[in-house]
């Protein structure tokens, strides 16, 4: 089966600086992948390239065999690393918005998650706390029945209890053919739910291995390995 995401010698330059340099990467379906790397290593650049918000300087990026565009946006559910919803909207308006936009949006799933997280549908976004807004955005993204979920720092701003719920949400809502790519610094929190990890360092892939391969080969957790590899 063809990979859901494929990068071939993918390079992105900002001015004369390389954000990504010659990245070759293929992700198969049905896995949860951690995209890990220190600040400025190119994680968000890669994620923006997947979503067509940036175009490659050189090389190619393919989502389900196609260059990012209208067709790939139908199958990619993207959680950006900042909030992108209008502050003046109410939760229920945002839900209606997503229903209109995405054929694969499940109102049933979103309702269940909103109830569990006790998010008031009548509340205006401007009245929600930072953490609640993040939860809402994650609910929107995970309520879609997508082939590829791209989550940029999904758990950074929420408390540990909500973090557990969010990880559970991710585990419950993804189907066996979907792939989830998660970028995060909170490795220890998500390590157990990952199939594999990709380490990015200064715009290059330095490691692409399964969590259990790392534990077998190095005798340490991904979190510990990361701290050693990227020691300041």
């Amino acid at each position: 089966m063809r990979p859901i995401l494929e990068c071939q010698s993918l390079t992105k330059k900002y001015g004369s600086d390389y954000a990504l340099f010659g990245v070759d990467l293929a992700l198969g379906r049905g896995q949860i992948v951690g995209l890990l790397g220190p600040n400025g290593s190119g994680k968000t650049t890669l994620i923006k390239l997947i979503n067509g918000l940036l175009t490659p300087t050189e090389g190619r990026i393919l989502v389900d065999g196609q260059a990012p565009g209208v067709e790939t946006k139908k199958i990619v559910s993207y959680l950006p690393d900042r909030d992108y919803l209008s502050r003046h909207m109410r939760v229920k308006d945002v839900l209606a918005y997503y229903m209109d936009f995405y054929k694969d949006f499940s109102a049933e799933n979103s309702s269940r998650m909103l109830d569990a997280l006790e998010i008031d549908r009548k509340a205006r976004l401007s009245s929600l706390s930072k953490g609640t807004k993040e939860k809402l955005q994650l609910v929107l993204v995970m309520s879609r029945n997508a082939d590829l979920y791209v989550l940029d720092e999904p758990i950074g701003g929420v408390d540990p209890a909500a973090r557990d719920y969010i990880l559970q949400t991710i585990l419950t809502n993804y189907n066996e053919n979907a792939t989830i790519l998660i970028s995060t610094h909170l490795i220890a929190d998500i390590e157990n739910v990952l199939d594999r990890v990709v380490f990015l360092s200064a715009g290059q892939v330095t490691l692409n291995a399964s969590v259990d391969e790392i534990r077998t080969d190095y005798g340490k957790s991904v979190d510990t390995l990361f701290r050693e590899v990227f020691k300041c």
């Binding site: 896995q31 949860i32 559970q168 585990l171 157990n192 969590v211």
Partner: peptide, 11 residues
């Protein structure tokens, strides 16, 4: 079981 353990289903 994966949900209960909070681990990846493939694992």
């Amino acid at each position: 079981l994966a949900l209960d353990a909070a681990v990846n289903p493939n694992t």
